[in-house]
Every structure is written in C-alpha cells, then in structure tokens.
Amino acid sequence: MSAKLELVCPAGGLPALKTAVDHGADCVYAGFRDETNARNFNGLNFDDKALAEGVKYAHDRSARVLIALNTFPQASNWSRWTAAVDRAAGHGVDAVILADMGLMDYAANKHPNLRLHLSVQGSATNYEAINFYRERFGIQRAVLPRVLSLAQVEQVIQNTPVEIEIFGFGGLCVMVEGRCALSAYATGTSPNCQGACSPGKSVRWEQTPQGMETRLNGILIDKFADGERAGYPTLCKGRFEVDDETYYAIEEPTSLNTIEMLPELMRIGVRAIKIEGRQRSPAYVAQVTQVWREAIDSCQRDAAHFAPKAGWMAELNKVSEGQSHTLGAYYRPWK
C-alpha cells in the first residue's frame, strides 16, 4: 500500500473547523463568505480573521487547510476571484481547490508555490482530462465527480500521477458536478456562478389540506402526507410524474456512504476521502469525522479483516439525508 489515506472534512465555519481537527481530520476544507465557492450560503464560511485563526488552529495540530474557490469567475467580477486566491495564499493555506481554468492559470503564475487541487466542479471524469490540468497548471490532486464506478476510479488512478480524492460520505449530487444547471433553470441561482443549489431564499414550505408541500420558486418539488417526514426541496430529490407514475424520478433523498468500501478504496490507491457537508452543523462534523477517523485507522491497521461496525453505520445514518445511504455510482448497478 502506498501513501496514507487522508480524511478531508468540511468546515462551514470556525467552530466546525476546530471540531473537525479535534476529531481527527487530516485536512479541512473551507471557503470565503461569497460566491467564490460552491457553498455560498448565509451564515457560512470565513472572513479573514476567522480564517487566520482557523489556519493557526489546524497547523498547530498538524492538520491542513484547503480553500475552495470552485465557482466560475466572469469578466465583471474576475478580480473578486483573483483576490480570493491572493487572500488564501496570504493566509498560508495548504492548497486551493479550483474549477476554472483561467483562475488556475492565475494561481499557477502568481503563486507558484501554492498547491492546486482540481475541484469536483471541474467535471474531470477521466485521466486525459486530469492529466490535462496537471500538464497545463500543475494540479497535484483531483476530486472526482460522483459518477464513476469503483473500477473506473481505479482506471483513473492507474493512469495519472495526480492524487485522487473521492467523496466518501454526505449529500449526493446525482448530476456531474459543474455540469448541472437545474437550479439555475428553476431559481436563477447557479451552482457554477453563484455557488448555491436550490437556495433557501427560493424555498416555500406550505401546509395544505393535502399535506405539506415544498416548492422552489413556486415549482412543486414534493408533497408529504401527514406523518411523512418532509425533506428539504433539493431539486433533484423531489417526486415527479413521468408517464403517469409518481416517484423519485432522479434520486431519492439519501446520502452517500462508502465506509464498507474502505479496503477497496485503499487497495486501488485513493489518496483522500472527502466528507460532504460544509452547510451542516459542527455536531454533524464531529459525528462523521469521529466515525470516519476510527474506520480509516481500523482499515489501515488490518484491511483484510475490516468490517464496518454496526455502531458506526447507526451513527452515520442518524445524520444522513433521508436517514438512509447508498454507495452511489461506485456500485455500478446504481447507474
């Protein structure tokens, strides 16, 4: 087995960052308080003061800080993204996670010692694409979109020197990240440009005689009978009608959980596991980081006899969307 498998945890704010570090994260990832990152939600993310404190807290405890600048700048706001790269570099972060080629070029030229990661928003699903970003901009790690089977992930790893990070747990994007304009179509808020999907400002919860209805910009995403748990109306996780059949036409409200695949992920050379959820609470971060730390350590001690503990799965299911989990595309029949 080659290098150690790293645990990369979400930090929506300073409390979550500290919690992740305290519970065993090797890296935390975070963003600034604007549309330069793909979790541009009210009350989340870092200003300079918080980031300075966060970087010091993490570095003092041998953890690393990655800054996501993974949305797409335009002519009218280019300087906001370049300033964000400069700020991240100035804080001494350990890497920036980028999606836009223009911004990679800027970062590589302006900060040649700053480590670059290719964001999942870069939509690179094969080694030709990943090697392209390496040759042109020197990226050292790529985060894969949640669309590849395990065999396809292995194929990528065998054909690139770039470290591969995959999503291991959390909310599940069914669409190729960076290639989804559903939220922009329905609400005008684009993950690619504004850094948010199915934004809270467009959500309406309406109790009606027929039950609870959830809407996005007026569009009915789902309705729930009394006693049914009404989930947040993420656009792709609603119930719709196709051919007179009503069902979760795109995906159920469920979370990704790959813990049972850990020995395989290590064997094929995955370098880092990413936990989704910068929008989640520090309590979520604590719970998930702790379980995954224990699982990775256990697997690294003895992969041959690794089995997920029932307690881990129960803890993780408690914080999962829809209280259920899936292996997603890593398990080929999911597709």
């Binding site: 797409f72 700048p73 335009q74 002519a75 280019w78 999606a99 836009d100 080629m101 223009g102 911004l103 070029d105 800027y106 870069g122 939509s123 690179a124 699903t125 094969n126 080694y127 030709e128 694409a129 090697n131 392209f132 970003y133 040759e135 960076g178 290639r179 690619n192 440009c193």
Partner: peptide, 30 residues
C-alpha cells in the same frame, strides 16, 4: 470535456470549445 481538449491540443488540431466546457470568463477563453 477536457479530455478531448487535451487530445486536440496535444495533436495541434483546431477544435470547437463546446457548451459544457464552462467558459464563463475571458481568461478561460484566451
């Protein structure tokens, strides 16, 4: 997608940058 860009660029072939390449800014276009 960028794998196709790599193949074209390496072979010095001209190409059309399709609608899914996420060209939102002039730096990327350049």
């Amino acid at each position: 997608e960028m794998g196709a860009v790599r193949l074209c660029a390496d072979a010095k072939r001209k190409f059309v940058a399709g609608p899914t390449l996420n060209v939102f800014g002039p730096e990327t276009l350049r």
